[in-house]
Computed example of a mutant assay.
Amino acid sequence: MVLLVAAWVVGALLMFMSAMGLSSTVLAQRGEQVEATVISLRDGTEKGRHIYYTLADPDGRRISGELGTWPGSTVGASDNPEGRVGQSVTVIRDPKGLVDPRLPEEVDAEATWIAWLFFFVVTAVLCALAGRPRVARRGWQGWRRAEAHAGRVELIRHHLTRPDEWWQNADREQRAAYVQDLLAPLRPSDKLLAELTSTIGGVVTATDDSNGDGRDEAEVDK
């Protein structure tokens, strides 16, 4: 669950970096640097104050999109400088209007795609780890598996093969409880428990039909 949440968070960052990478690549490949003029301001809906600037080129034509960062601004700062209507600012714009204009120092396609590649690899690794098959639990629970303690099981099996009137007359539930007490704190599987509770005088007696085919298991000499 934790890995899935982490993958979701990093995936969101990956999508953001993809958008940033597209913008930087377009402007780096075909962008034009112009001296633009602020013609209007808009306060964004984000928490706190964030101004977006509508710009016009030197010929007075509106530049497609909005400038979201003023020169000298720092992400997260509360005292960032702000531009005014009529003020000039140097930007790189897309002649075809596909992406917003950006400051020249923001157009670094190589760095953006390196960051994108990093988040892509992290996302892929987290998804692979989150989707891998669950393996058997180790530690205390794994240690308690009786099958992992062959020597202990053999000692108990040898003990059960000795003639004992109580054991021979006990029903299956009594035998199961007795075997589980001997193995504690180990836990036998259903198959091992059935084998041990069927042991009488050195042989494994016929057990209940477990395959549903009407056949009993033949006696097996120890």
Rank of each mutant, 00 (worst) to 15 (best):
P188R: 03
K191N: 05
K191W: 12
Q33I: 11
Q29M: 00
Q33E: 09
G65P: 08
Q87N: 11
V122Y: 01
E46F: 06
A170Q: 05
G202D: 08
E66M: 15
D59S: 13
E219L: 02
A19S: 13
A7N: 00
T205P: 01
E147R: 01
L183C: 13
T69G: 01
V10H: 01
A28H: 03
L4T: 04
L117E: 00
P81N: 07
N169W: 13
G60D: 04
T207N: 05
V34E: 02
G212T: 07
A36Y: 15
D209P: 03
D209G: 07
H159L: 14
Y53C: 01
P71A: 15
R134C: 10
L129Q: 10
G48V: 09
L103S: 08
V2N: 06
V2S: 11
L117T: 03
I200E: 11
A12K: 03
L160D: 00
P95C: 12
G48M: 07
A77V: 08
V85I: 12
G86V: 05
A136I: 00
D79Q: 08
S64R: 15
L55Q: 10
S189M: 06
W166D: 15
A19M: 06
T74L: 10
E32Q: 15
L14E: 03
A28N: 08
W70V: 10
A136Q: 12
K222F: 08
G60Y: 11
Y178S: 07
V89W: 14
P58C: 13
Y53G: 03
E217M: 08
V220E: 12
F16K: 00
E154Y: 15
M15W: 13
Q87D: 15
G151H: 03
V135Q: 11
E147W: 02
T45N: 14
R152S: 07
G72P: 01
R84N: 07
F16S: 09
G202I: 01
G72A: 08
G142S: 07
R138M: 03
S24K: 12
Y52P: 06
P133V: 02
A218K: 14
L4H: 02
S73I: 09
K47E: 10
R145N: 12
W8K: 03
V121Y: 06
I200C: 14
W143C: 11
E217H: 13
G86D: 04
L196E: 04
G44N: 14
D208G: 14
V135G: 07
D94W: 09
S78L: 15
I200Y: 09
E165Y: 02
G48I: 03
A128H: 05
E105C: 04
D171S: 09
L182E: 10
T69M: 04
G142I: 07
V125Q: 02
E165T: 11
R152K: 15
L67Y: 13
P95D: 10
I63R: 02
D221E: 12
V204S: 07
S18R: 07
N80Q: 09
V34S: 04
L103M: 04
A111M: 15
